[in-house]
Design a binder for these strands. Structure first.
Lengths: 127, 127
DNA sequence: TGATTAATAGGAATCATTACTACTTAAACT
DNA sequence: AGTTTAAGTAGTAATGATTCCTATTAATCA
């Protein structure tokens, strides 16, 4: 993988946020620095970075998001505003449970908790 | 919700499988019975059924699938063939952990385990 | 410093899903 | 039973996220 200022900028934007952004959001941020970067370049690099395990892909409710946080963690997703928050939960007994299952060979898992975030909770109360 | 033979047929197809199918797969099955049903009708009814909690939506790696199994359960997804298997794992301590988190009000969660299913494991060994 | 080839910009293509519209039909109301 | 009315349908167009294509640019290396 050669170095390119586009990929560097993309990675830097992603590492500078904990908002689990979409490609479109990253595109709009990187554009401030490289105004004529194309959305295709953003997607291509995000996929390359994810394939090279420099970032992670997240699928929340059908939409693709990205995360520069590489250590194993899970997510909460607000069903109103789609905001994603990081979770650190210990899934006691899960490793044994899935290694006992002889239908497959597990390599990973991800937990998505859904609900309403505090901001959205307050909004609905105000109405 | 009025009754329609299209919706009945769709629900029956979904209840008759544990393969967590896509809309397209359900479409191809229902077509055997109602040859001129349209894909839009399948999508509209699947969404209605899901909104009415008669079936569940599943998002596996960005693709929409459906499940007539309504009781809370999780899934294993094979990263080779995309097959989905049902899991019954008890997530010890999870309920307390997420209700202790004061950033949100959780209403549900889903766990997706990934890896290689036995069929795909054997295939790779044969090569 | 020139050759090689990965990477890019810009735009076209793809694919799953949703929206639109004129027609059909379930079912509520005489 | 016949009429009304609004939900449902078929067929097709539109959408939107993502990927693909191609001529050009630029990183790397002999």
């Amino acid at each position: 993988m050669r170095k390119s200022k586009q990929r560097d900028a993309i990675l830097q934007v992603l590492q500078g946020t904990d908002s689990h952004p979409t490609a479109e959001w990253i595109f709009s941020r990187v554009r401030r620095e490289i105004p004529n970067i194309s959305l295709g370049t953003v997607y291509r690099n995000l996929n390359q970075l994810a394939d090279g395990h420099l970032i992670q892909r997240i699928f929340d409710d059908g939409h693709l998001r990205f995360d520069a946080n590489l250590h194993r963690h899970d997510h909460f997703r607000c069903i109103h505003c789609q905001r994603i928050l990081d979770l650190e939960v210990e899934l006691v007994g899960l490793d044994e449970a899935i290694s006992d299952d002889d239908r497959f060979n597990a390599t990973g898992y991800s937990l998505e908790v859904t609900g309403v975030c505090n901001e959205c909770q307050h909004e609905t109360e105000e109405i």
